[in-house]
Nucleic acid binder design. Structure first.
Lengths: 184, 184
DNA sequence: ACCTGAACACCGTTCAAGT
DNA sequence: ACCTGAACACCGTTCAAGT
């Protein structure tokens, strides 16, 4: 075992990474996940090669952004599992994820594609969803045979609608589907 | 008024137009509406300039395809308005449009964008939807204040889901939302 | 170890020249 | 009147050369 231990990254590399993530977040919010990566690099003040050095694919960049943004969301999901009203908890969860996933146009499609690079995020999302679904079913609050997969599909579709219709209209769709899913 | 009357198109131009539409239909089914137009032209055996001559924008090409494909759908919609069970008629309509709009990946997004070039199709779709919604409401089969706009959003979202999830999973979403929209 | 930016590839779009 | 395809523009991606 002569292998060197993983060294801490160079300070400028770390700084470039942070700037790239910050600018990618801003650009993706404005233009969606299909935005020009050249533009992201320019705004971050680095050469395009530096961006590819840190994030070999567009999806890797998206995954890194989610890694940061998801912490809060997952904590919220875990907290919801302790709530007294399982039906409300499930509905709140879906609404929270939809708002979250609608931040970038194209993110819903990226999640739905279930690529390897995003599977960590997808896994956690489905796990929390399934837990809340199970609780709601046990409480008799679920209509029919609704599954965690149904919840995942609904979240993605509603997030997509938020980027292609008005948010208000997308929320109506979401309420409609939740009404079909949850009793009373 | 010396203006020449609109002449009938040259036979080769007509033939090129037909071949372009046929190949575009095939390519869009395989690869979605974002597919390479160069590829469409190649498959149709014409130069790329010929494609742009007939269809100045990608959306114009999509609109021309819908023009053909929509006839049957609209006829079906009109027939549904005569059906005895308004709730079933509305549900059947939504399902038919979704299957129709899911033929090309990206079509749902194009419809949701409501561009000028597609407004004819969108107009007809919403008009038929609204008529069926009104009948269902009069029959007391509609939950809450569901509107034609809700139906339009649902159709687009479900069509999107069909291209990004399994069709079966997308159909479950559709059934869920319909259950939230239509009374028993 | 990381950064740079020129180089290459690919595709969308236009338009002058043909028939 | 319509078709052709070269020409231009733009952007994604790689990689040899620098520090």
């Amino acid at each position: 075992m002569t292998g060197a231990a993983t060294r801490r990254p160079r300070a400028d590399a770390l700084r470039n990474r942070e700037r790239l993530l910050a600018e990618a977040d801003a650009v993706f919010r404005e233009q969606g996940t299909g935005a020009s990566l050249e533009g992201v690099a320019r705004r971050a003040g680095v050469a395009i090669g530096t961006l590819y050095g840190h994030f070999p694919t567009r999806t890797a960049l998206i995954a890194a952004l989610l890694d940061v943004r998801n912490r809060e969301l997952f904590a919220h999901g875990d907290a919801l599992a302790e709530r007294p009203d399982p039906a409300r908890a499930l509905a709140d969860w879906v609404r929270a994820v939809v708002r979250h996933a609608a931040a970038y146009q194209g993110l819903a499609a990226a999640l739905a594609a279930r690529s390897d690079e995003l599977q960590d995020s997808c896994h956690r999302l489905t796990a929390i969803g399934e837990r809340l679904v199970d609780r709601a079913r046990t409480a008799g609050a679920l209509r029919g045979d609704t599954t965690g997969a149904d919840v995942f599909t609904l979240m993605n579709a509603a997030a997509w609608a938020r980027g292609h219709d008005t948010p208000a209209q997308a929320d109506r769709l979401l309420d409609l589907a939740l009404a079909g899913m949850i009793v009373g």
